[in-house]
Write a protein that binds this DNA or RNA. Structure first.
Lengths: 350, 350
DNA sequence: ATTTGTTTTGACATCGTTGTCAGTTTTAGT
DNA sequence: ACTAAAACTGACAACGATGTCAAAACAAAT
């Protein structure tokens, strides 16, 4: 059956398969290569250009990107692996990555890994199979041999990889570093400066490096101010709102209850504020609360949340730019660290 | 230069390009076809299987998906076009689509279109060029000739398309229908039932069909109850929080201010509540507020928001399932409508 | 041992595009 | 008009995988 022409279907309807460059060339009366060149935008005799453009339009020609990629050895894809697009922070992160990449001619292949280790491995394999030209690997909780192996394969092949949140020096790649310790120190010190002495901390899962660092920042600040951290004042949650609510209630029920809570995420903090309100305590008078991330909610909550702002846009933009630079220069030597320090945004909650 | 082997680089480092099936076959001492077959999992002589598996492992072979796709005429891709992943509702929508598609062997190619019409066209062209096997087109504001043309090309080629939020019967495709009118009627009637007579409405951009329907629902309910809609009680915003805040303030400054506001989105509603609080009014005593979407915030806000829940998970799951069914059956005749009616979730704000 | 039937195998072609490079046309300069 | 330089064109091969189909290897049965 000749290609690109009407073919019959069971139900008697008709359909066209997509036209190829050969058909366009034939229709225009030029060679396929010429047609391809013209459609790719390089210069040509005006007449041919007209002919080819007309033919392409007539046949509804759309370049087959997969074939083009195969031939040219590029995929035009950037891989992005993140924990879950549903956790605040990531949608903005993705949007900026997407837009920046698009502007430079790249598509983003997103894997939002909600499951465990095997899901990460699957995502990485998929990225490999789809020949992404660069990879942003942004898993906060991760230390799995199999995926490490795959990441190392990328590096061996000199394919750029940027790791966020978790590298630990295990692979020789660029890193996004958030100054968690310093940030939480800032928030804690601020509370101390405003007179608080009994300050508790609700952390996220300690399996994640970032969360361990945040806890460290809290302890540092308390140590520096020679303040005691009472038993039970440090509690570990999942980073979810509900958890924040429950843990805060437990804290507030203590006989000698803390007057301030430093929270490892904004969601926890909002949960903690809700807990206080449900128990009839006023924020910030009876309880001061700080968060981390500055998710959009933070300024909408009542009271609005004092928090540490992660400049997602800047992080995302600089990260993609570095990645694309790496792709273009074909040089992944001398791994860089993109360091970001969250700013303390003072609002009503503390 | 022989492929798959060490090649020199400027900086003296070395790199391997990815091994192909030919190299695996050579290493294993079988034909490429046999290697391919074994790697695809079909039966073979045990000895060959061992040899090929060993060779693949040794060379770090990863199938080139693009090449495989080209040959097999499938892309394994589902396209998803949405307005912006940063607006609440979509991250969950995407995650469910992503997970469901993955479970059935499809990857999701996401275009989060933050710009105007030309961006939509670009996204559609990209989806076409990448030969997505099915397309979920979920733009709420949209009536642009060029993109319509592309969508129609999909349909002519019998490639499944599911349109959400906006079809208007312009193309013959499956549709996701949210019963906006009925939903807002429910919320408005509920307010009326609880004694409110002066009820205002803050809508999203009327360019979007969904927003026009929501306004219609409000008017219907008011009409049915024979309640007057005063001049200025219906205002149009962008759907953003800030807009909700400002418009609500304007409403509340009116001499004869409304006692309740029906909002077209949760963000608007949260803004409206904040406006009331800033003006010293209590929600729900001085002002009742209802939202739309039931974004996660809705139940965290203070007071928690009475709203209309869109079952994103169910919508997403049923949509992908239909799409994949269409892909497999190669039959896009008899367009279906997936109809969803939001539930009224009564919380504290009304 | 021979035949028949079944399962595996591999040479070749192909998917749609583009790089290479020699050949052709056009342009510019005299 | 003629020549050299510049611009464009097209035949061919290749990217990496897999479908086709005939040939080969094995198994079962006589």
């Amino acid at each position: 059956m000749e290609k690109g022409f009407v073919i019959g279907l069971k139900n008697g309807q008709q359909s066209r398969s997509m036209a190829t460059i050969y058909e366009v060339a034939k229709e225009a009366g030029v060679s396929p290569k010429t047609a391809a060149r013209i459609l790719a935008g390089s210069s040509s005799r005006p007449k041919n250009k007209e002919l080819v453009m007309a033919a392409a339009k007539k046949l509804g020609y759309v370049r087959n990107q997969q074939a083009a990629n195969l031939r040219s050895g590029k995929s035009g894809l950037i891989g992005l692996i993140i924990p879950s697009i549903t956790s605040p922070f990531y949608p903005w992160f993705f949007q900026t990555i997407h837009d920046t990449a698009l502007a430079k001619g790249y598509q983003v292949l997103l894997s939002s890994v909600s499951g465990g280790h095997s899901e990460v491995v699957k995502a990485l394999q998929m990225m490999e199979a789809n020949r992404v030209e660069g990879l942003l690997f942004n898993m906060s909780e991760w230390d799995d041999k199999e995926s490490l192996e795959i990441l190392n394969r990328f590096v061996e092949r000199k394919q750029p990889v940027i790791v966020g949140g978790t590298n630990l020096g295990k692979i020789q790649a660029d890193e996004i570093v958030i100054k968690n310790i310093e940030a939480i120190e800032k928030a804690t010190s601020y509370l101390i400066k405003t007179g608080h002495k009994k300050i508790a901390f609700i952390s996220g899962p300690q399996a994640a490096l970032g969360n361990r660092e945040r806890l460290e920042g809290y302890r540092n600040a308390m140590d520096k101010a020679k303040l005691m951290v009472k038993d039970g004042w440090v509690c570990e949650g999942t980073g979810e709102f509900v958890e924040g609510l429950d843990l805060a209630k437990t804290l507030l029920r203590m006989s000698d209850r803390p007057t301030a809570i430093v929270c490892a995420t904004d969601l926890i903090a909002i949960g903690a504020m809700k807990a206080a309100q449900e128990m009839g305590l006023s924020v910030p008078n009876d309880l001061a609360v700080t968060g981390f991330d500055d998710i959009p909610w933070a300024k909408l909550s009542a009271p609005s949340l004092t928090t540490l702002r992660q400049p997602q846009n800047r992080i995302a933009r600089e990260t993609v730019n570095l990645l694309i630079e790496r792709i273009n220069s074909k040089d992944i030597s001398n791994p860089r660290r993109l360091v970001f320090e969250p700013d303390l945004i003072i609002r009503e909650s503390a």
